Deep mutational scan, measured.
Amino acid sequence: DLRKKIVDLHKSGSSLGAISKRLKVPRSSVQTIVRKYK
């Protein structure tokens, strides 16, 4: 699940930009998912 991957990467200390590059999703999507998770 993409959300879980993003949250896991964020927990392990990756920046939003790094996560978005790695998973090839827009940075804004990463930000939204991380914000919802918090």
Rank of each mutant, 00 (worst) to 15 (best):
K24N: 13
V25L: 10
R22G: 06
I19D: 00
K4E: 08
K4Y: 08
S14T: 09
Y37L: 09
R35I: 06
S20T: 05
K24Q: 10
R27A: 04
P26F: 04
V7Q: 06
L23Q: 00
K36N: 10
R22W: 09
V34G: 02
R27Q: 05
A18R: 07
S12Y: 07
S29V: 15
I33C: 06
T32W: 12
P26H: 08
L9E: 02
Y37G: 03
T32V: 13
L2G: 03
K21H: 07
K5W: 13
K38D: 07
A18T: 09
D8R: 11
G13K: 04
I6T: 02
S14L: 15
D8H: 11
S12V: 06
V30M: 01
S29G: 06
P26G: 06
K38Q: 11
R22M: 15
K4N: 09
L2I: 12
R22N: 09
I19H: 01
L2W: 10
R27T: 05
K38L: 14
I19E: 00
L16S: 06
R3C: 14
H10K: 04
I6P: 01
L23D: 00
V34K: 02
V7Y: 10
L16I: 15
L16V: 14
D1F: 14
G17S: 14
K21L: 07
S29D: 09
P26C: 11
A18Y: 11
R27K: 12
K36F: 09
T32A: 15
S12F: 07
G13N: 03
D1T: 13
L2Y: 08
K36L: 12
G13F: 03
S12N: 11
V34R: 03
V30W: 02
G17E: 10
S29Y: 15
L23F: 07
S29F: 15
K11R: 13
L23N: 00
L16C: 11
S12K: 12
K36H: 10
S29T: 15
L9P: 00
S15Q: 03
V34L: 13
T32K: 15
P26V: 06
R3K: 10
I6E: 02
L2D: 02
K4R: 12
K38G: 10
Q31V: 13
S20W: 00
L16R: 03
R27G: 02
S14N: 12
L23T: 04
S28D: 07
I6K: 01
D1E: 12
S29P: 02
L2P: 03
S28W: 12
I19W: 00
G17P: 05
A18S: 11
S29L: 15
K24E: 05
P26D: 06
S14E: 15
K4I: 08
L9G: 01
D1Q: 12
V30S: 03
V30K: 03
V34E: 00
K5V: 11
R27N: 04
V30L: 04
L9C: 09
V25G: 01
I33R: 04
K24V: 05
S29I: 15
T32L: 14
D1L: 13
P26R: 10
D1I: 13
P26E: 05
K36G: 08
K21V: 07
S20N: 02
G17I: 11
K4L: 08
S29W: 15
K38S: 09
K11E: 09
R22A: 15
I6Q: 00
S14V: 15
R22I: 15
K38R: 10
S20I: 05
R35T: 07
L16M: 11
K21T: 07
Y37W: 12
K5M: 14
A18F: 11
D8K: 11
K11D: 06
K24R: 12
D8L: 14
V34Y: 02
S12T: 10
R35Y: 06
P26W: 06
G17M: 12
L23R: 01
L16Y: 12
G13V: 01
P26K: 10
K24M: 09
G13C: 05
G17Q: 11
S28K: 14
I33M: 05
L16Q: 06
K11H: 07
Q31G: 08
K24Y: 05
L9F: 06
V25R: 03
S15H: 03
T32Q: 14
P26M: 05
S14M: 15
S28R: 13
I6Y: 01
R27L: 14
K38W: 11
L16G: 03
T32P: 03
S12W: 08
D8F: 14
L23Y: 06
K36E: 13
G13Q: 01
H10Q: 03
R3H: 12
T32Y: 13
K4F: 08
I6S: 00
L2E: 03
K36Q: 13
K21D: 06
K5S: 08
K5N: 07
V7R: 06
S12E: 09
K11T: 10
Q31T: 08
S14P: 02
K36M: 12
G17H: 15
P26T: 09
P26I: 05
L16E: 05
Q31M: 07
L9D: 02
L16A: 08
L16H: 06
R3E: 12
T32F: 11
V7L: 15
D1V: 13
K11A: 09
K4Q: 12
V7G: 03
H10F: 15
Y37S: 05
G13L: 02
R35W: 06
